[in-house]
Design a protein around this nucleic acid. Sequence first.
DNA 1: TGCGACTGAGAAATCGCTTTCTCCGCTCGA
DNA 2: TCGAGCGGAGAAAGCGATTTCTCAGTCGCA
Lengths: 340, 340
Amino acid sequence: MGERSRGVTISDVAAHAGVSPASVSRVLNGRQSVDPDIVRRVQASIATLGYAPSALARNLVLGRTRTIAMVVPDLENPLFQGILKGLSLAAAGDGYRVLVADTAERVEDEEATALEARGRCDALVLCAPRMPEERLRRLVDRVAPVVVVNRPLPELEVPIVGVDYVRGIRDLVDHLVALGHRRLAYVSGPEASASNAERVRGVDEALAMHPAVRIDRIPGGSRPEDGEAVADAVAAAHRAGVTAVLAFNDLVALGLLARLRELGVDVPRELSVAGFDDVPMARYATPRLTSMSVPRAEIGAQAWSRLRTLIDGGSVDHSVLYRPRLEARESTATAAQAVA
Amino acid sequence: MGERSRGVTISDVAAHAGVSPASVSRVLNGRQSVDPDIVRRVQASIATLGYAPSALARNLVLGRTRTIAMVVPDLENPLFQGILKGLSLAAAGDGYRVLVADTAERVEDEEATALEARGRCDALVLCAPRMPEERLRRLVDRVAPVVVVNRPLPELEVPIVGVDYVRGIRDLVDHLVALGHRRLAYVSGPEASASNAERVRGVDEALAMHPAVRIDRIPGGSRPEDGEAVADAVAAAHRAGVTAVLAFNDLVALGLLARLRELGVDVPRELSVAGFDDVPMARYATPRLTSMSVPRAEIGAQAWSRLRTLIDGGSVDHSVLYRPRLEARESTATAAQAVA
DNA sequence: TGCGACTGAGAAATCGCTTTCTCCGCTCGA
DNA sequence: TCGAGCGGAGAAAGCGATTTCTCAGTCGCA
């Protein structure tokens, strides 16, 4: 019943093979050439005894665990799931595993969670931390090596990998403007979200570039429920002349779409709707949702790549900001009819 | 720069406080009463030195890591994501963290991955393992404590927590039959999936109970793309008289819905479509998707509860099988019109 | 007042490995 | 032929905690 390997140590193997534990270790790690005969005997003993080295003991003596942790505000968010997937696959390629630490959006727990998680592993990925910048700055150098994802942190010796939401929103607005829309609305995300702030900046910059355009702001949220909840407000805005809506993200857009249909607002004929993130479901929505694609898995992989450099004692790479790619689908269309 | 706490050991604290390391340990763990004055001095020293006990050292001496691992075939599957969320939250409540190990659907890697992951932690959750039953049986007692999720494994001393797909499908068929449907189709999932096999059994049992009903089988898959791909076949089946379709899961159903719309098949007026799992997006689909709800987070929480019992040396609890709950929404409707 | 039970703190062993450090025996060059 | 140099194996010293084990000092009770 698996008792066989219970408690077999390197000394047992050594004794069984008639050599010293040091030799067994050498055979295992191949750090030094050892007598072929010893190698053979040790391997035989390992096989018969069913020996497996204790990871715990190695961790202690080597001072590393080959484990990293990812701290995230909400594991249920498709964006973070994608990042986790990319991170865990990339890390696995180098023999590392990832620990997840979900703070469940409790900002006050973020620091403690990060510290605790860091204690168990070699490095950290801080995903979209919500805490105030000042505290975050203090935190990052207590938990190094660390890379921060999706949270701008200017002039700091920490690799950042993220998304250029400012640019993304601008591109999206450009798309809408090119379709003839002049009166838009932005359904905003959570107040505490740094990426929402970025989007708002994108909206502002877009406005500066398109003097003829007007963009209303409608308080929203980050989940489908929030999208449903603001549908009435959006419909009202539409009656007031708005012809296109940008939602904080796809989840909100999808919820919005569902409710707008029930309210009798025809998307995209009467009103164009766009999301952000390009979650897997976006292209299966009705109508298929126009969105800004974000390379989720790639972000995770990049985070790992930077982390590995740091772990190996390398210096911080340049930060990377992905520019979202427009996925124009059915939910946005020319404004002609609405204007007419 | 965080160097302060780098390498501060329990001995440093002891020296600084003028006591023995043993006393520091006692203060930390409160296992034994110690002189209040010593407690005070030790705590002061800990604070000034910025000491944090090494988790690695504790792991070795205590023989436990307060970490568990979850091995899953695909982190991108919403079902597993929900389970992970529930598991990680429940475990965190007891001070445990969870390690994720994504096998990326490579059956041949499952065993090695599980073994490797197990070596780093105290227990395992095997989520929907794809490997043959015989190997799985051997595996589970090499990695105990372990709980298996979503994979039936009769007569084994291992807690199972899962979903009663057989019953779920039967209930779903009942729903459709009650709506007047007599000719149905089942879009099946991956061949290797145990839960697909269960669903097929559910279909068979349903047939046995409803002699007048016929259920075609259409090979499908598990992702939205698969749903899109079978849309033509489904449409053909519809022309041949099928009035309701059960998809392997919601993802497939959602993909199917999107494509059927393009093919001009009106759901639910001409054809009813039902999914399975009740993923978050299901209720925002167009039309809102009828599905069988599965308590994802609850499954994760239950898995943890059982695992904790096992870790604490308790004996295996009874296994638990959740009966999916019907979420009747807009995508299924009475067959009257189609029959007419 | 005297002696055993008890309390509490330090010394030392331990967890299971890796990695010097040491030493032995060989080879090779002068 | 002899010593320097070297390769390889075992002994031993950690890694940083926890947990006996040991022992001195107290307390209580007769």
